[in-house]
Simulated scan of single mutants.
Amino acid sequence: MNLAEIPLFSMLKGRFGHLGERQRLISQNVANSDTPGYTPTDLQAYSFRAQMQSQMRPVTTQAVTQVGHMAPAARPNTTFRPIQAKDSETTLDGNSVVLEEEMMKMAEARMNYDAAISFYQKSLAMLRMASRAPGRG
């Protein structure tokens, strides 16, 4: 069984991708904190509703009863698009990176990543428990 075929794990994979990309953008902002004219970027907040809608099949799609019977529905592209972050302070050289804000974003992303890892581990433990033979501890 492929874990990516289970909607819960597919959604967690999307969440990990979002958090990884967000951390990459934040580190890029920190690295350019002294670059004149640099505007920081960030990702839009992760939307559970949008992720659920991307996982749901349209009502008109028929279920596959045999391998090769019909082509499976195409999965939507889950690329993340950076957005310009709001300016809270802009220096005289046009740079609007505030290191304190970037560090708070990094800590928030790390806490969300830790929560997602914990949820992933607990879900795997539940699958392992469900797949054991009865009476075995």
Score class of each variant (00 low, 15 high):
Gly94Cys: 09
Gly14Arg: 15
Glu100Cys: 04
Met129Asn: 13
Phe16Arg: 13
Met126Trp: 10
Ser131Asn: 14
Ile117Trp: 07
Ala4His: 07
Thr90Gly: 07
Asn95Asp: 15
Ala125Asn: 11
Glu5Ala: 15
Thr78Trp: 06
Ala50Arg: 05
Arg110Ser: 08
Met106Asp: 03
Asn29Trp: 08
Tyr113Ile: 04
Asp87Met: 05
Ser27Val: 12
Asp42Gly: 00
Leu8Asn: 06
Thr61Leu: 04
Ala125Tyr: 07
Arg136Gly: 11
Asn77Met: 09
Pro7His: 08
Thr91Tyr: 12
Met11Gln: 13
Leu99His: 06
Ala71Phe: 03
Met1Ile: 07
Gln51Ala: 14
Met103His: 10
Ala85Leu: 14
Arg81Ser: 06
Tyr113Trp: 13
Leu127Pro: 09
Leu25Val: 12
Glu102Trp: 09
Tyr46Glu: 01
Leu99Lys: 06
Val64Glu: 01
Arg24Tyr: 06
Lys105Glu: 11
Thr60Glu: 06
Ile83Thr: 10
Gln55Tyr: 03
Gln51Ile: 04
Ser47Cys: 02
Gly94Phe: 13
Met126Pro: 02
Gln121Cys: 03
Asn2Trp: 05
Glu102Gln: 13
Pro58Thr: 10
Gly68Val: 09
Asn112Asp: 11
Gln84Val: 11
Gln23His: 13
Leu124Asn: 11
Ala109Arg: 03
Glu5Cys: 03
Gly137Leu: 15
Ile6Gly: 11
Ala116Tyr: 02
Met70Tyr: 00
Val67Phe: 01
Arg128Phe: 13
Pro72Ala: 00
Asp42Leu: 00
Ala4Arg: 09
Ala50Thr: 02
Met56Arg: 10
Lys13Thr: 15
